[in-house]
């Protein structure tokens, strides 16, 4: 009994220590972001907390982060919406239907998960020019299509499992009631796959929101996402830690909120879909 108490104590001790270590980077950024530069410059852990202010956020916002943030939202929401709509229906077909070249097509789509993004990056620049996707808001459509092509493999990987678990009798009875294949998909299969779809939305949103390379390469400076804006701020010689830290906290918040809201679904979705033995 006594030994047990010690193991429990040690368990929580280690967990608490690990949690503190885990939080230090975020706490550091958050503290620097709410302190005036002269306070954070002598160690945020010694700073006078009464000087805390949100002024850094206001300045970062005015110095261009507002545009970058808006761009990030446009890119992420349109990419995720497109990928979810197209990916879900494709996953349903791969799970429930027979068609030609299914194995090969599945292989090709799955390789998008594995092959580094660099394989498509370079030709996309002239390709966007050819398709007139290189100017103005059309760039958003272009990058959304690229993110969709890239998300396709993940969508299939995560969603096929959900659709193939649905008992055939359920779909069959819908068909006997006169439902078309599309109606069976929308009314029966789709609601049953919601946990998988939600966890895919989280993963895809986080992935697209956090992309730096494609935004940097394919978009002009007025349409680039927040990740690129942050990387541009990062210039050590300029001593603008206040702006950089508040920018990085801003960049963290949207995916974090989404994750916090949908966390429950995510664990369930991952459990049922991807890692089931």
């Amino acid at each position: 009994m006594r030994q047990r108490r010690w193991t429990v104590f040690a368990l929580y001790g280690i967990l608490t220590l690990a949690s503190i270590i885990w939080l230090v980077p975020v706490v550091t950024a958050a503290m620097i972001s709410i302190l005036p530069l002269d306070q954070s410059g002598t160690g945020w852990w010694r700073a006078d907390l009464s000087t805390a202010t949100l002024e850094n956020y206001g300045r970062a916002w005015q110095q261009g982060l507002s545009t970058y943030t808006l761009n990030s939202f446009i890119i992420s929401i349109s990419s995720v919406a497109l990928t979810v709509v197209l990916g879900t229906s494709a996953a349903y077909a791969f799970a429930r239907m027979k068609f030609r070249l299914k194995g090969l097509l599945y292989f090709l789509l799955i390789t998008t998960m594995i092959v580094p993004v660099q394989i498509i990056l370079i030709p996309l620049v002239p390709w966007f020019r050819t398709l007139n996707l290189n100017e103005g808001p059309a760039q958003f459509l272009g990058i959304a299509l690229v993110h969709t092509a890239f998300g396709a493999g993940w969508a299939l990987f995560m969603l096929i499992g959900f659709f193939s678990q649905i008992p055939e009798e359920v779909l069959e009875s819908a068909r006997l009631d006169g439902a078309s294949e599309f109606q069976a998909f929308r009314r029966i299969a789709l609601p049953l796959a919601v946990p998988g779809i939600v966890s895919f939305i989280i993963i895809d949103f986080v992935f697209v929101w956090n992309d730096l390379l494609m935004g940097l390469t394919l978009l002009d400076s007025n349409h680039r996402p927040l990740t690129v804006g942050l990387a541009n701020l990062q210039a050590p010689q300029l001593n603008q830690d206040d702006l950089i830290s508040s920018g990085s906290i801003l960049a963290i918040i949207p995916p974090l909120l989404l994750f916090a809201l949908l966390n429950r679904y995510y664990v369930r979705g991952l459990y049922a879909g991807a890692v089931k033995g």
């Binding site: 939080l23 980077p25 950024a29 929101w209 990085s248 960049a251």
Partner: peptide, 18 residues
């Protein structure tokens, strides 16, 4: 422990530069 997963690698890099 899951929290940093939602942070982009560019933001993670910047945070760790501090």
């Amino acid at each position: 422990f899951i929290l940093p997963m939602t942070i982009s690698l560019s933001a993670a890099g910047i945070i760790w530069s501090f």
